[in-house]
């Protein structure tokens, strides 16, 4: 990994008196896939909109490809590609015209435009649809076309705002393949998502954002490792006593009581530690109702840092945020 291609320092953004982004700082290295993970309304889109100059930078410093978004907006626009969250296509233009239009408004010379169109149409496998109007494309094809369009000008960074929202699982896998392929060719990818699996599969590094603040950062593995080797979810007849026992054991680095029982974080292989835990609880004649062990996932990381589950909460969360407006 080379130098930082995006540098954000203390970015703040408010809509009225609602602070959507609150003192966010991070850097993205050239060549990596960087994910912004968080529930709906966490501030992801606001951040990406400031980074791509669609919203003004109210407070803080944002540099993209070495240019300040405040003082050098044009240069930023020229060096990035953007795939918007919602569909941004002219339904009555053909696939070829869509790319041609984009190349032209970015002032690409004709020969370069044509070469790039051919190349990208092949990349996203839309050769058969070249002269089809975009309204006749499937959701996945539209997404692929939008990604191709974002790449027309060979941007150094491609911004993808929720790239697979509303797509079926098979199509998502395909889009992921394209994104990985594009990254391997050398384009830095900045993506926002509220899908754990998406962030997990694609990213070199992840920032978890909630209520406008970054709450955790790292690689997928390092984030999970903060939760130890394994996690055990335990339900007993007497959670309070069991909690006390578990806390005193070596290899257990964290114990938390939740509404569903106990959550144990282990610093060693769970297969080896679990029998010990169970037998010591059993010795105290505490009834064990259920046991479940798993490798920590990004879901667990999110729950750990926010105390909420991402997916279950996100809809309700969005609702509350809307009401606050």
């Amino acid at each position: 990994m080379a130098s930082a291609i995006i540098e954000v320092t203390d970015l703040e953004h408010s809509f009225g008196d609602v602070k959507a982004v609150d003192k966010v700082s991070f850097t993205v290295e050239e060549g990596e896939i960087f994910s912004f993970l968080g529930p709906n309304g966490a501030g992801k889109s606001t951040t990406i909109n400031v980074l791509t100059t669609q919203l003004p930078c109210q407070k803080g410093i944002v540099r993209v490809c070495g240019f300040d978004v405040r003082t050098n907006r044009q240069a930023v626009k020229k060096s990035i590609g953007v795939v918007f969250q919602d569909e941004v296509l002219d339904r009555d233009m053909t696939v070829r015209e869509t790319l041609e239009f984009h190349g032209r408004i970015y002032s690409m010379p004709r020969s370069e435009r044509l070469a790039r169109e051919t190349e990208l149409i092949e990349l996203v496998e839309l050769e058969q649809k070249l002269n089809v109007r975009t309204k006749h494309l499937s959701g996945g094809m539209k997404r692929r076309l939008e990604i191709a369009r974002g790449l027309m000008t060979r941007p150094r960074v491609l911004f993808l705002d929720e790239p697979t929202i509303g797509l079926d699982p098979q199509t998502r896998l395909k889009i992921w393949d394209y994104i990985k392929g594009i990254n391997e060719e050398g384009t830095t990818i900045f993506l926002t998502t509220h899908y754990m699996d998406e962030a997990d599969t694609l990213s070199d590094r992840i920032e978890i954002i909630d209520y406008g603040k970054i709450i955790a950062t790292g690689t997928s593995d390092s984030l999970k490792n903060t939760l130890g080797e394994d996690m055990i979810y335990l339900q007993t007849g007497d959670d309070d006593r069991a909690l006390g026992l578990a806390e005193s054991m070596s290899d257990v680095t964290g114990v938390k009581k939740t509404s569903k029982g106990l959550e144990l974080i282990l610093s060693a292989d769970g297969g080896r530690v679990m029998p010990k835990i169970l037998s010591s609880i059993g010795k105290e004649s505490i009834e064990i109702l259920s046991v479940r062990m798993k490798k920590p996932s990004l879901d667990d990381v999110f729950v750990h840092y926010t105390g909420r589950e991402l997916r279950a909460e996100s809809a309700e969360n969005a609702f509350h945020r809307r009401r606050r407006h």
């Binding site: 626009k77 296509l89 002219d90």
Partner: peptide
Amino acid sequence: FDKNWGIMKEMLASPMPSYH
């Protein structure tokens, strides 16, 4: 239409000055 369902976003995100 472009604003609500079309490519106004694309045009405004591009380096092309908006008076074009």
